[in-house]
Design a protein around this nucleic acid. Structure first.
Lengths: 217, 217, 217, 217
DNA sequence: GATGAATGAGATTTCATTCAT
DNA sequence: AATGAATGAAATCTCATTCAT
């Protein structure tokens, strides 16, 4: 299971910002929670300062403006974690010669669902920015468009050869697998009834696998 | 196809706000587009006024503050359209005695996807609010939790009896069907590569149906 | 005497900014005096607002930032007045066929000294900016380098032909004539003992003329 | 030539501030150049620290606030150098029994022009302060009003007796001699086309002398 | 002495909202 | 109803200065 690794990676990323004082760390944490609660625009510098227990000026000591602070909050998610995790995923999970579709789907869904669950606050912030910021969208297109080509596509192709997966375009398949993940995220955002994550995974895997498995006739 | 009805309903709702001058209508339209483009907080009254081609003061003539304007933008979507459309959906679409799973899924997916596509701007605004406003979430719980119980659940139950659908909990099934819809909406938000909506519908329907169809063995 | 014209031109320029409310005019006046007294950087928006008798926000209603306000204060001096006055000067003063050197010098010195005297505040501000702003300098080079070529130089050439003026390079002569004017301005800046302006003019003209008159031997 | 002496005096003055570390000297130099480039107000402590290659705190180790730093920059110019140089000037230059007007003027103009040229940065700063500080002006009045009375006036009187100089009031003559010097300084401020300083001196001397020489008739 | 993170007062600027015309 | 100048509260950000290390 790669999940523990993810947490580790995240923590590691935070520690990499090691030029940060304890107070600056507090500012980062305060900003993270406030951005998630109220959104970026609705959060004022003085609010952040108050929650972090520092003076307003201190917010601007290390992070030279609010946007930079936002980026500092999102970076561990987008940059490092995203790609590193993805790389890890290739190495440790996807790169095995999957014989069964289910093994593949289960690994992927579990990994990503835990990732979403563990980073829900950051994801909320990112989504919020995506809605207003017209710059972030294109940046993420890569992650969602290009990454699968080198990671998931080869595996899908292999499964296709073995007739273990339905013959739909690769991107359509990927998009379909993402469905339950995105819905899961949606539920988190809407604070909708929590279902034990194992159950959530099991149901999702069951339905996705069924959906992707070719009918014999 | 219910889509045209939706538009009609929306327009009708706008016309119901009939105490509105033409200028006020322009203000509403300007606010709608700006909120969708930049988010609520990042949109200023004077921007709205400029795009509407009126004076700033006029923005406050009918809508007494910015928040009221936001509500006026969202109301036709949430209140009227949502419920009315839902009712319509029951009457016209779901309430038939579906014999085939595919008929049911296709009707539902097509309808909702067009609904999302036609109201993308409003949905973007609403999502934006959902992320910051901690009040809207619970309200929508009803729509997503309770409504299906009286609309989709009976149909699913009927399909289950005929062994035309997999024997998963009803809410899990509903959630699964929503997957591609939510993903579709996500793509709109991220402004990701447009695929002809018919194709999008066909692929989604194919996969969902396959996923929900019981295996013979 | 062109002096009255200058004042007229200046006032006219101010009136051309006619989109200005009375309050905005007050802001302009307040800014002018405060910039002259304390310098641009040392003057705060709230100081301007207070002296103008308006709210802080009103300072930014018409002039969108402090620099724009500075420009609004300096523009009538640099742009319009400078060039217009210069044009007028050509037409009305320099363009006569001066036979005597003294006539020429007296006209020029009197005109410029009154110009300086009448616009001392604006000149102080401009000089202050010149010292810090690295953009204004080059702009003024034109005025000081190019303008004389089309205005004063032809007259000097004519005087040279008639042996009425010493045979020094034209720009050296112009620079020399400017000496007493610049000194006069320096005295105003330093708030040094005022001498009746007529006397100031007479002495300056006497010495300049003597300096420029060729010795017979 | 007294110029070298001036530099020496200046350096000597700096050395007199001998409680200064090398770092503190760097701070002084950094402040000098930055104040000259951008003006006092527009220069921040951290900028000074950066250019001096020290920490912000070090700026305040010796100079207890920014104004004190400004004074430390200006003092060697105003206090020591100014008066000392003036004294030197009396001793070494003016106190000779000048027979020719030109000798006198040439000595004075050359000396002052080099002085200005060598201390242009300090002069820029001083002028900048003069424009905003309403206290420095009066202080300088002495230098410009009283000093000549004991230095230049006696020499002028002697020249008048010998009919070697025009019979204008002494202060008018002094002011006239200063004209080209002030203009020269103005050109430095405006960064206007540089002319070789020897030429600048020669032309100025020629014109001033001609201007001050009585006509035979 | 030197450092630089922390401070908080204050500056600039924005903007929802009011109100006289 | 419509206008847009005026308002002032609040937000972002800067910076001189302090102080613990």
């Amino acid at each position: 299971m790669t999940e523990s690794k993810l947490r580790e990676l995240y923590e590691q990323n935070l520690r990499q910002m090691d030029n940060l004082t304890e107070k600056q760390q507090n500012i980062l944490k305060a900003a993270l929670s406030l951005f998630a609660e109220q959104g970026f625009d609705a959060t004022s510098s003085s609010q952040i300062a108050k929650r972090a227990g520092v003076a307003v000026g201190s917010v601007y000591q290390h992070f030279h403006n609010k946007r930079e602070l936002l980026m500092a909050v999102l970076t561990p998610l987008t940059k490092s974690v995203f790609s590193q995790a993805a790389d890890q995923f290739i190495d440790k999970t996807l790169d095995k010669d999957y014989n069964s579709l289910e093994q593949f789907i289960r690994a992927l869904v579990a990994d990503r669902m835990l990732f979403i669950s563990n980073n829900r606050e950051e994801f909320k912030i990112m989504l919020g920015q995506l809605l207003s910021d017209n710059q972030l969208g294109p940046e993420l297109n890569h992650a969602f468009n290009e990454q699968p080509k080198t990671t998931a596509f080869p595996i899908i192709d292999r499964l296709k050869k073995k007739k273990l997966i339905i013959d739909y375009p690769n991107d359509v398949i990927v998009q379909f697998v993402f469905g339950p993940l995105v819905t899961f995220f949606g539920k988190i955002i809407l604070a909708i009834k929590p279902m034990p994550i194992d159950q959530e995974i099991n149901y999702a895997v069951g339905l996705i696998v069924n959906g992707l498995t070719p009918r014999s006739n």
